[in-house]
Design a binder for these strands. Structure first.
Lengths: 130, 130
DNA sequence: TTTCTAATGTTATATTATTACATAATGTTA
DNA sequence: TAACATTATGTAATAATATAACATTAGAAA
């Protein structure tokens, strides 16, 4: 069906929902909200999410088991993600800092090893909650 | 019961197991392995894990839902964690790099905001798997 | 058209984590 | 010490998150 480049129906439905949301959505919240569009089962959501994460359209906030649309317009960033998370209101913001991504992409560990991917989650209090 | 500083029986049992392990352990793996010591229910494990994470004795590998003992001898590091994860063999190593932790602890976002905590997970292939 | 591959649909189930509530141990204050 | 508050425990039930397995279908490729 799908060769590449374009999204399947389920993927588009899930992406539309996640993009419209101002906060990260959980898989079963997504499921609940797309049932009127014909998606009936968890697996349909998880499959769409897997693909969308893979191609960088959305990111998973690992500490929250939730998904957020990518906000780096030039989204080669599936492999290098950074977020700030407010511990009170749970607001999540994607960080796009050239300095940070450069630093982390070039980071070498003790053995001189570099890594192809990373995910960074910062925690603290957002402006409103301080 | 517990004022501070020392661990309760369940916490000690769980910590002992996690410290002996060379790989991150999942909560139900821990449960299975401590049942002979009298811990019967998931909640007993999760409560111990929560506390151990809180005091920095162990860390949660968020992308794997698994727990690993802290290897930074001076463990003020509950709030600033970094790991490398091999995508083939799933080997996880805690990274202790003064440079990295300094860089991230001092990182300011666009709004000039600093964060009190972070968790960083690098992904790639370990030496053996390359 | 025939064949191949990737996506879908569906059911069931596995895995991870928490709620709720009763009890017990310890700490704190008078 | 007695009374009370606080923290830890035990236990059962259930919620939330995620995947396995298998049959089917849509489109791509030849």
């Amino acid at each position: 069906m799908q060769k590449q480049n374009f999204l399947t129906k389920n993927q588009q439905i899930v992406l539309d929902l996640v993009e419209k949301s101002s906060e990260p959505l959980k898989a079963y919240t997504i499921l609940f909200n797309v049932q009127k569009k014909g998606i009936k089962a968890p697996l349909q959501v998880y499959r769409a999410l897997d693909k969308l994460v893979e191609i960088g359209k959305i990111h998973k906030i690992e500490s929250r088991n939730a998904f957020i649309a990518c906000h780096n317009s030039s989204c080669q960033v599936a492999k290098a993600t950074a977020f700030s998370i407010c511990e009170i209101c749970e607001k999540v913001t994607e960080i796009s800092s050239a300095g940070l991504s450069k630093y982390l992409s070039n980071f070498k560990d003790k053995d001189g090893m570099k890594y192809s991917k990373y995910n960074l989650e910062f925690f603290g209090l957002c402006k409103k909650c301080r």
